[in-house]
Design a protein around this nucleic acid. Structure first.
Length: 493
RNA sequence: GGCAUUGUGGCCGAGUGGCUAGGCAGAGCUCUGCAAAAGCUUGUACAGCGGUUCGAAUCCGCUCGAUGCCUCCA
């Protein structure tokens, strides 16, 4: 008996705009695809929030007993910087600027991405495919769509014919846009355009001679269009129709809309049952974006080296902060909000730490079974982690009362409570009970600094019994004091 | 300009047609040598204006504001 058989999960489906009861295509199995990062610069905190939301979702599915194939791609082919005639590949541009091979850039930022995600305690996806590893598959899709007459070749590039597609399919159903409105509101294009219509999008782009990233194709040397890789990789690993496709809200249009169009044109069936969009992390009320410079890098938050922050925050505190907001809500990052989260996180962790030594009694003043189900109810309601956390604090209150002898808990309930805390806090939310090593070593320096000061005061008062006691006992603990001309320092042995 | 989302107490952030989360901060009390921690008590918030309703912060309309997308973007 798996948990998913008793817990009814509802998911907000962007396609219908409603919460729907989740039913996978194959019972007990879930196929989930999430659009990953373009690896041309360091992953920023906003990127992390989206991936963290899906990490939490992945964790909950696994906890419920589902077998999940979670595919999250790495976009390493690069895409057009702008629509101008000298359109240059993002990755190629960065490579030129840094005098690196494009694949060197890809490698550097892929490593950075993985490194940061590890610090945040992410579970690795089942498959992490790259766009450049699936050029052949993408070319095959372009061919198939051309054969159906839903794309056209112009000067070595292939474009998807949105108008033609709209005759038989609903282009715009995900983002709530109407093609006629889009045509009516088309911006003036300054550059000459090969496309029949501004709504059309590239399936394959011709590579100019100076373009470094290029592959041979039936239409000449070029590179795949931005939207195509996800269709190629999701179909290859999850099938023509699969359960869940996720990504950031900003990808809803045009990226995901185009993915739907391509896949429907290619396979005559809708590719995804549940579309999920994680909302943006803002900084000072504005979207974090690499392009505008309004962003914080994860390492800046771990070190506190950012003008917006008063101090360093551990990855787990940041994770807790993010989990306190629902994944579909915009979340604004501020130092004040992080401080509040840090205090709350610490209270939660202190309570969990005291759980082991909690005295047990004959009965429980606290309905543990009902409390556990409330936690599941929160998660089952479209992964409502803020409600789950509120419920966790309900338990914190009881744990503290039991600790003070004002309430009792039975041994059996204590075991259930302990296991549920483990499940909710560590397995599902993905938090870790660790103060950052940085802040611990800071605390240690402060503590030893205080002792050094006291010892100096004692020495000044010729109270050598005290001063020697401080020195010798610290030495026993492996902390060696060193008196020098400029004061006392210490080393750890 | 178009499409979408959104507007909750000092701050962050849930939620529901009537029983009004949670965290942080604040106030009072208990405990304590003093603190801290912990516990208890406390805050009648839902942008504005209309409408529907016995009743709306929750539904509808309008106004104002914010954000995202419409060009690469998590």
């Amino acid at each position: 008996m798996q948990l998913y058989q008793t817990q009814e999960l509802k998911i907000y489906n962007s396609l219908s705009g409603k919460k729907e009861v989740f039913k996978p295509l194959n019972e007990g199995h879930i196929g989930m695809y999430v659009c990953g990062p373009t690896v041309y610069s360091n992953v920023h905190l906003g990127n992390c929030r989206t991936f963290m939301s899906f990490d939490m979702i992945f964790r909950y599915f696994k906890h419920l007993g589902y077998k999940v194939r979670y595919v999250r791609n790495i976009t390493d082919a690069g895409h057009l910087e702008d629509d101008a005639e000298d359109g240059e590949d993002k990755i190629a541009k960065k490579a030129r600027l840094e005098q690196l091979e494009p694949m060197e850039v890809v490698q550097r930022y892929t490593l950075d991405f993985h490194n940061i995600l590890n610090k945040f305690n992410f579970l690795p996806p089942s498959i992490e495919p790259t766009a450049t590893g699936h050029i052949v598959e993408q070319i095959e899709i372009v061919k198939a769509i051309l054969d159906k007459g839903l794309a056209y070749v112009v000067n070595g590039s292939v474009y998807f014919d949105v108008a033609k597609f709209s005759e038989t399919n609903d282009y715009g159903k995900l983002s709530g846009r109407k093609l006629e409105d889009m045509i009516a509101n088309t911006r003036e294009l300054t550059a000459q355009d090969e496309k029949k219509s501004p709504q059309d999008f590239a399936l394959w782009k011709k590579a100019e001679p100076q373009h470094i990233m290029r592959w041979p194709s039936p239409w000449g040397d070029g590179f795949p269009g931005w939207h195509l890789e996800c269709t190629a990789m999701s179909t290859k690993y999850l099938g023509e129709t699969f359960d869940i496709h996720g990504g950031g809200m900003d990808l809803k249009f045009p990226h995901h809309e185009c993915e739907i169009a391509q896949a429907e044109a290619w396979n005559n069936q809708t590719p995804v049952n549940y579309w999920m969009h994680a909302n943006m992390l803002t900084l000072n009320g504005r979207k974090m974006a690499k392009s505008t410079g309004n962003n914080i890098l994860p390492n800046e938050i771990f070190s506190g080296e950012n003008p917006f922050l008063s101090k360093a925050y551990s990855p787990s505190v940041v994770r807790f902060f993010m989990m306190q907001a629902h994944y579909t809500s915009i979340l604004d990052l501020s130092d004040e909000a992080l401080l509040a989260s840090e205090r709350g996180y610490q209270r939660l962790m202190d309570s969990i730490a005291s759980l082991e030594q909690l005295p047990t009694g004959d009965s429980s003043d606290f309905n543990v079974a009902a409390w556990v189900q409330k936690g599941y109810d929160a998660m089952n309601d479209d992964f409502n982690t803020p409600i789950l956390i509120a419920n966790l604090f309900e338990a914190v209150k009881h744990i503290n009362l039991i600790k003070e002898g004002k309430e009792t808990i039975s041994a059996a309930d204590k075991k259930i409570l302990s296991q549920a805390m483990q499940n909710f806090v560590f397995d599902i939310l993905g938090l870790e009970n660790q103060n950052s090593t940085q802040s611990n070593s800071d605390k240690l320096s402060n503590v030893v600094g205080l002792l050094i000061e006291m010892r100096n005061e004692a020495r000044a008062n010729k109270d050598f019994a005290t001063s020697d006691k401080i020195r010798d006992q610290l030495a026993e603990m492996g902390i060696q004091l060193k008196d020098g001309k400029d004061g006392t320092t210490f080393t750890l042995s």
